[in-house]
Amino acid sequence: MLRFLLLFALALGLFSAGAASAETPTLTIYTYNSFTSEWGPGPAVTKAFEATCACKVDWVALEDGAALLSRLQLEGKDTKADLVLGLDTSLTAEATATGLFAPHALDLSHLKVPIAWTDPVFVPFDYGYFAVVYDKTKLPKPPASLKELVEGDPSQKIVLEDPRSSTPGLGFMLWIKEVYGDQAGAAWTKLSPRILTVSKGWSEAYGLFTQGEAPMVLSYTTSPAYHIIEEKTDKYAAAPFAEGHYMQVEVAGRIAGSPESDLAGKFLAFMISPGFQDQIPTTNWMYPVSDVTGGLPKEFGQLVQPAKSLLFTPEEVAAHRKQWIDEWLQATGQ
């Protein structure tokens, strides 16, 4: 019995030791998990920002972008976040409506975002276009349109992301909605036999794809650049779709009333400076929102350029998201 109490005490001791924290100011940033992975922008960005701020950056990595919003809604005013990085324009209206975010107070007029930027709360940090990325060795004839994907051979599987937790998943749902309108439910039902699995976030889906579990995955037109630059292979490519590609603009915002509000503001300014933006093309594999030192890597020239880009306004998504998610649940759950 005595041995046991000792063990218990030891466990509790370890427990409380873990809770002790440092003296330097800490900026807590909620983000999605691929951002902070060792090959993502997280490590380099942390180093660059910590060199200027005499502070510590503490990343809290969640499943994916859309899970960030639900987490904030669950935590409400008690949230530990000082800054949230990784929402996109599909979620900004709902995120603003929580009242948890403070205006950025930055001049963003010089940014090169493909849409006019007027949002007073959120700051864009990169953008890209969703695309079906496929393995050329397994799929010699990829679908040439969303319609071909929906109606194609069900034995050729695709890995998708859950629109409730992931911004690519949400983006794909909106893509289908934009193209099919009222017929979106029917399109999902038609597509369901092709879906190998619906993962919580982009990194899970992409991991399954690169491990060869499925020949297609929902990702970005820019994803093949990773394989060309880092792995020297053009085995993977994005399929250009005739209907156009859904666009994503990723944003960050600071939490109102956080004790590190100033630090969060500094981070937002740093985020649109070269120290951060230079990392984006070759670590987050997206397009930067400002000019990067030395220009984009030449391999980006080989990538699919969407003939047309599709995007709902944040207000349209906010008004219908719940209803469309329910429609998706009904249609794919059959």
């Binding site: 899970a67 639900s70 809604q73 669950l74 937790s165 619906v198 919580k200 998706w328 649940l329 794919t332």
Partner: peptide, 22 residues
């Protein structure tokens, strides 16, 4: 499970809390 087609009540209620905030 692999998506909403194979969700049980337990998983659906977990997702309703954590993913949908519903």
């Amino acid at each position: 499970g692999g998506g909403p087609a194979n969700s049980t009540i337990e998983v659906a209620l977990y997702q309703a809390v954590r993913f949908e905030f519903d």
